[in-house]
Design a binder for these strands. Structure first.
Lengths: 191, 191
DNA sequence: GCAGTATGAATGAAGG
DNA sequence: CCTTCATTCATACTGC
């Protein structure tokens, strides 16, 4: 998992107002690019479509290396951060001491799609309820370092990456037969 | 930004590969969990059934805190993003003058987020291929610094017709009236 | 050089 | 499934 980290971009451009250098790794927008993007944003563009992204990217490529994804991410981030700042501030300003229901109020209204699927395919009863262990401390159990290999030796960590064909088939068959009340057992021990 | 600490999550995890810490708010898969999930995915499992999800979840819980929904979402996201990622988004809009590199994609996974939109929303034909087709010739053509286009037609579309006329004008003036800028032009007419 | 910060990139989680 | 939001991770940049 240790990234290869190929990050060694020689980027000379800075906020000062230039746009030279720029080689690899992560995109480093030139001031011109940022300017255009900002203008577009201020113009009301929040979530550009594919076409728009492409065009913007193409145009901006004149000022320097850029890819579509950069434009996409830029807008995503910019929008998100604008909102984030907004949120933080507003919370601080008129906090009514009772306004805590939209930030980290996690769970309780659960995910629709997930529930729907769960509910349909095979009533998991308290599939979600299982999650209701918030009053337990066992949550902290997992903070244990990775030295708890005893009971479940399902995943030989040193065998990842490659597996035999028969195993693939097994998996496949399992996957193919899971419609109603699948008698299938997904034992991950095949790994 | 400092405030990042909105939550109370002690996220000690990082790209370094770990499995400790992390226990609040959003699920933070350990490397082992990711590994297993990835393997399952690679094995052909795309949309696990409820039972499968449950089993996977149960098994993965050995490595750390996890809930069924996490597994569910993981597969959904991974599948979607993987599919679109496959779309090859390395649009080298900017021709490599002499820079033939092939080391920028090796580190982590690429983006997967924006790809989705790219592939589907609009041009189902080819999004990236286009970049290879056009050699930015025409791009430069109407990017001539000297050529000042009166156009500032932002977005002919209407997806976001939020901007007001004044703003268009502002942009326009900005574009057409750049006293101290050489070849810089902010024409957004390409959209 | 390291700390702090701004921001690009990735992905978990939801909504529709 | 597709689109979007939110949070987080990683890195470029700036200042000390």
């Amino acid at each position: 998992m240790d990234e290869g980290m190929s990050g060694f971009c020689i980027k000379a451009s800075a906020a000062g107002g230039n746009g030279t250098g720029t080689k690899c790794g992560r995109w480093n927008p030139t001031t011109e690019q940022v300017k255009v993007l900002t203008e577009l944003f201020r113009s009301g563009l929040r979530t550009p479509s594919t076409d728009q992204i492409q065009k913007i990217s193409t145009q901006l490529s004149f000022y320097g290396k850029i890819e579509s994804k950069n434009v996409f991410y830029w807008f995503q981030n910019h929008k998100a951060r604008e909102r984030q700042k907004r949120r933080k501030v507003s919370i601080s300003v008129h906090d009514d001491h009772h306004n805590h229901n939209h930030n980290h109020d996690l769970h309780h209204h659960q995910h629709k799609d997930f529930i729907r699927r769960m509910d349909k395919i095979s009533s998991p009863k308290h599939f979600l309820e299982v999650n209701h262990h918030h009053h337990h401390q066992q949550v902290y159990d997992h903070l244990q370092p990775e030295r708890v290999m005893e009971t479940l030796q399902l995943f030989p960590l040193n065998s990842f990456g490659e597996y035999s064909e028969p195993e693939k088939l097994m998996i496949r068959s399992m996957n193919a037969n899971h419609d109603h009340h699948p008698p299938l057992d997904l034992r991950l021990s095949f790994l």
